[in-house]
Design a binder for these strands. Structure first.
Lengths: 158, 158
DNA sequence: ACGCCGAAGATACAATATATCATTGCCATT
DNA sequence: AATGGCAATGATATATTGTATCTTCGGCGT
């Protein structure tokens, strides 16, 4: 059950602090705008689209935030490992342990939209090896499973 | 190298015939429009978007084909296992062995856009089990690897 | 003060996806 | 032949997601 190395799972302010530290170690500036967007992303209960975040931040700050600004910032976040893109949902999710680098496996519920993530380096390693065997380089694995989560299955059964 | 069960790899007319048989076994009608779109999808050298296909079919038939018609037909194709959606590319690819059901692993080149696929039931099975362990049902694994293909890597080195 | 440069704003547009309603053609029943 | 049901397709509109380009702002070093 335990992963090989400790994940420091953060939430709330602790997560924001850890993110800021990791971000600045990567040589990026932790600006107010970026902090706002990170907060909105952290607060989301499911993968959020750039437009969702633009709307959320516009609402919370009063100022109107354009989608393309959000995209720019999300790109920087993803590059710095503060966030992940969920390809099958065209949406983004915060990385709760920004200090360590992983290939993630996302489980995305088709019914409620919630996503959870699994780390299994043995599994993601196998996927990487399969791609390398085919001559691929600069790998970026995308491993997601769409399905119906436990909670939604229960709800249907009731 | 050999997979556990024989894949019948089709191409050209042989593929269209096999697809039609599988499609009709699934209780669907093989209409001229669907045949056109299947042909366009088969002819594509890389994953094709619905709009690509709409344009290709419009060109080859003279009649204008609307994107939503293409979407509808692609949905049916995917349901009948004649085609696959490449999530990380928002595009579709033909299934060259429509008679057998697999979870596929797609390798997608960020440089040239080509996609190839790998079958590894052990690997995809592990992904499924990981999702099931988390209580997910109705699984649809999305396993793709973005990267740079062998051909493009060579080209860069030259 | 001046110029440089990265961040952010503004605007426009491209690409992808869905909703809705109308039309057509086929088939079964009458 | 008329009727009605039904699946496939057409037509149109709109929603959603993603980029490109140019401008403006603000910090920072000279």
């Amino acid at each position: 059950m335990a992963t090989a190395h400790d994940h420091r799972l953060h939430e709330g302010q602790s997560l924001a602090d850890a993110a800021q530290r990791a971000f600045e170690r990567a040589g990026e500036q932790w600006t107010p705008m970026r902090a706002e967007i990170f907060a909105a992303l952290s607060a989301a209960t499911k993968p959020a689209s750039a437009y969702d975040l633009a709307e959320a931040v516009s609402g919370s700050t009063g100022r109107r935030v354009a989608a393309n600004s959000v995209y720019r910032i999300l790109d920087v976040f993803v590059a710095a490992n503060l966030a992940r893109r969920v390809e099958s949902a065209n949406a983004y999710i915060v990385n709760a342990h920004p200090e360590c680098q992983h290939d993630c496996i996302f489980l995305v519920c088709d019914s409620c939209g919630q996503a959870s993530h699994v780390d299994d380096d043995a599994l993601t390693g196998s996927v990487r090896r399969a791609a390398e065997k085919a001559g691929f380089t600069n790998l970026r694995p995308v491993i997601e499973v769409r399905g119906c989560c436990a909670q939604c299955s229960e709800g249907d059964a009731a």
